[in-house]
């Protein structure tokens, strides 16, 4: 069926590959990931190649992106957090550009697959754990023991803190994936209504204006969500990295 709302998320193998029994075929998802990385890098390299004292349009866009992330990271994790700037900036640009690519008709949305968002969230999660232990040693475990809590209560509070910590990669990844998936399905469903109502005579064509207006509005909303999800993901990354740097900070 032409307007099956799920079909847009199907993986298509372009170059079948298998190494050691593991399927690592080059799919449309891989293609769009490569495209995202290439477009982002190419744009940033091109935009900053002029190194103008007075930035042009492209350069000021690149500088705005830099400052946006640098401020976010500095606000959340302090100036020591800037060691993570390359990671956080790459994450933000990758998610933002992948989400925006998804808004083109017939394009594939990389972030609408949970395996991709889980990989990104686990990357952040393990960075926090490994860097936290590397930097603070066992004092990193203070993260689970809030200061000023009486000893008997720790029996309850520590498991709660542990659950709260381990729930992070789940909420981190599901939020991005679910928003992108649900948004694209809604968009497709309402767009499908236009076609099916348009095929139902003159009254249907007149009525098709309603889902058309809805699709129009939703498209705008989806652009907002595409940006906001990249923003939320990055902001939470900064906050989690802050825990790795200052485990007794809360």
């Amino acid at each position: 069926m032409a307007n099956d709302p799920i079909k847009q998320f199907e993986l298509k193998e372009y170059i079948p590959l298998e190494i050691g029994g593991v399927d690592i075929s080059f799919t449309n998802s891989s293609l769009f990931m490569v495209a995202t990385v290439v477009v982002t890098s190419a744009f940033l390299l091109w935009a900053t190649s002029g190194r103008g004292m007075i930035p042009g349009r492209a350069q000021s866009l690149a500088e705005m992106a830099y400052e946006f992330i640098a401020n976010m990271l500095r606000d959340a994790a302090g100036s020591q957090g800037m060691v993570f700037f390359p990671l956080v900036f790459s994450l933000f640009m990758f998610i933002l550009v992948a989400n925006m690519f998804g808004m083109f008709p017939y394009f594939f949305t990389v972030t609408s697959h949970i395996i991709v968002t889980v990989a990104l969230a686990l990357l952040v999660f393990f960075t926090v754990i490994i860097y936290g232990f590397y930097k603070n040693g066992l004092t990193f475990l203070k993260l689970f023991v809030p200061s000023g809590v009486p000893a008997p209560l720790l029996l309850i509070v520590v498991p709660i803190e542990v659950i709260s910590f381990f729930s992070r990669p789940l909420s981190h990844s599901v939020r991005l994936f679910a928003n992108m998936l649900a948004g694209h399905i809604t968009l497709k469903v309402f767009a499908g209504f236009i076609v099916s109502m348009g095929g139902a005579g003159a009254l249907g064509v007149a009525g098709a204006i309603l889902p058309f207006l809805m699709t129009l509005g939703l498209t705008g909303l989806e652009f907002l969500v595409a940006f906001l999800q990249a923003y939320v993901f990055t902001m939470l990354t900064c906050m989690y990295l802050n825990d790795a740097l200052h485990p007794d900070g809360h």
Partner: peptide, 22 residues
């Protein structure tokens, strides 16, 4: 504010799920 609105629900649900899973 908008970022917060998008965060709250999923954080609440994911904690319950992770607690149950552990």
């Amino acid at each position: 504010g908008m970022a917060l609105a998008l965060r709250v629900a999923s954080e609440f649900v994911s904690s319950i799920l992770v607690g149950a899973a552990i």
